[in-house]
Design a protein around this nucleic acid. Sequence first.
DNA 1: GTTGTACATGTACAACTGTACAGATTGAGG
DNA 2: CCTCAATCTGTACAGTTGTACATGTACAAC
Lengths: 190, 190
Amino acid sequence: MALRGVARRRALLDATVRVIGRGGIAAVDHRAVAAEAGVPLGSTTYYFDSKDDMVARALEHVAEREAERLRAESEGGALDVGPDLLPERLADVVIHAWAGDRVTLLAQYELYLESARRPYLRPAAERWDRAYRDLLQHALELLGAPDPPRRARLLCASLDGLLLDHVATASDPSELRSLAIELIERIAAP
Amino acid sequence: MALRGVARRRALLDATVRVIGRGGIAAVDHRAVAAEAGVPLGSTTYYFDSKDDMVARALEHVAEREAERLRAESEGGALDVGPDLLPERLADVVIHAWAGDRVTLLAQYELYLESARRPYLRPAAERWDRAYRDLLQHALELLGAPDPPRRARLLCASLDGLLLDHVATASDPSELRSLAIELIERIAAP
DNA sequence: GTTGTACATGTACAACTGTACAGATTGAGG
DNA sequence: CCTCAATCTGTACAGTTGTACATGTACAAC
């Protein structure tokens, strides 16, 4: 089976994400990624066609991972609560998984921004966005909000902005939570 | 007078911003910036201590420029309209200046994100944020919203998210405008 | 005109970086 | 055991990049 290398490949992708989170895309080079993953330099060229390819796969990797998490959260019944509790539950789903991992969150924004410049990255970014928006749309339907697709789009972008502000300013997490809840309630309101 | 070089210095800063907007911070190197500004390589080391310094000054440059624009807009009476027209006027102020210059907008987000990693960039990013939030707070007061500082924080982050989404997905500008207006109205609502 | 200072730039080079590649190792199938 | 493909890795090297610096030029003050 051609599966022996899968673990190492993933280790390299994870390492790439950490390097980007810590120092931006500018900090990515084969040696830094190899060291971060604890593998020899040669491995990086074996698993990726080029540096650009490495960065691109890293985006697809985080996007896929995040999309899966959101879908799992949705199907796992995270939103199965009354409408009065839904906003804070939703805020927790969106925020909590990130609270502890500032570096990954930074990398995610870095890669999202990069997708604005490299058209071939758009599909991955869009699949991620889609999973995100589906979750929000579902919640908005449960909350009885009108025109859920549009509201979901608005809420998705707004929450992203809130997260970005939080990660940039390292603001108080509990304040972030309270702002997120308020945002959700306001955008869900008829 | 020690002022002869000011124009060239600004030309280099503008060039740096364009390079970042087009290719990200990873694309910045002395030669690329010099070529973009139409000056010889040596100029870059004359005006900046290092590459990091160059990028840092570029952030301060855009931040200062943007903060000034927002202040001018505010004092220039852009918000002197009735409460019914204020939301769309505000949306135009926030959005319109950017609509034509995708590259600069991308650079702004890139630099804002970078300020999360380099603490010495925070003051510049914060002065910018402050100018932005002051404008929004003023508008929210005119709209009679309660707790304007908090609402301004929320609106600031949300609108940023909306812009980020727009610049990443190259979405329809008129849809962006309509979403921005809705966001403003919802966050201003009592 | 001399001098001092800010401005300017071409060139050089050590360090870094992307990538190729030859050769080693592994492990499943025959 | 042999074969073969996948996996792995150390080394090499050409191209790039950050930065120093010697040398110049402009121009205000005296």
